[in-house]
């Protein structure tokens, strides 16, 4: 019994409701981006709750744009990263939702440590702070981001807390508050 088990009172079996829509989306996307899709995980057979598409990094923005504009998955539910400790080290994860059917898909891409990700701000302005958070917590740089600063931690903080090699405890004390940056207001 794991995530594949359908629980009626906990969203039930998504495949009953969205199965055909997902199937169509996955065939259409794999036709459009044949060589750039690394792997497709499907609910029911793999241990995921919604279809998970792992795509190669160079085409990620085109891929997202296509999913958003052509297939209607236009709502960015969530954007985050996962430290896989492998090579390449990180996954950047996008959760998209279809506004009419409310079906969801998950799109992942692998990023190596020190590599840059293209920004998704042209597609969703809301990605701005999500990318800042990913930068703050994992140290993944986003190319083309207008304002890539730390967001939750202090600007003077060293290290990226959600990396697996970052210790659970480790205080950095700042005696003065962070000053206002007039540059950001010009």
């Amino acid at each position: 019994m794991d995530v594949r088990t359908s629980i009626k009172t906990n969203w039930g079996n998504f495949s009953d409701k969205y199965g055909t829509a997902w199937e169509q989306l996955l065939t259409a996307l794999s036709n459009d981006f044949t060589s750039s899709i690394e792997q497709i995980l499907k609910p029911g057979t793999d241990a995921v709750d919604i279809p998970t598409i792992i795509v190669k990094k160079p085409i990620i923005i085109d891929f997202l744009r296509s999913t958003k504009d052509r297939y209607g998955y236009s709502f960015l539910s969530d954007m985050t990263a996962v430290d896989e400790e492998g090579d390449p080290r990180f996954f950047v994860v996008y959760h998209l939702m279809h506004l009419e059917t409310k079906a969801r898909v998950r799109i992942k891409t692998r990023v190596a440590d020190g590599e840059k990700m293209p920004t998704a701000i042209p597609l969703w302005e809301g990605a701005n702070w999500a990318e800042r958070e990913i930068y703050d917590m994992f140290g993944i740089h986003f190319e083309g981001h207008p304002d890539l600063r730390r967001i939750l931690m202090d600007q003077r903080w060293e290290g990226h807390p959600l990396r697996k090699d970052y210790p659970l405890r480790g205080y950095q004390i700042f005696l003065s508050p962070e000053p206002i940056d007039p540059e950001l207001l010009s």
């Binding site: 019994m1 794991d2 995530v3 594949r4 906990n10 969203w11 241990a47 995921v48 709750d49 919604i50 998970t52 539910s77 969530d78 959760h95 969801r104 998950r106």
Partner: peptide, 15 residues
């Protein structure tokens, strides 16, 4: 068990 899931619920403020 190994796996990944995104579970969302309508909280008072939103998803």
């Amino acid at each position: 068990p190994a796996g990944e899931a995104y579970t969302a619920f309508e909280a008072a403020n939103g998803e």
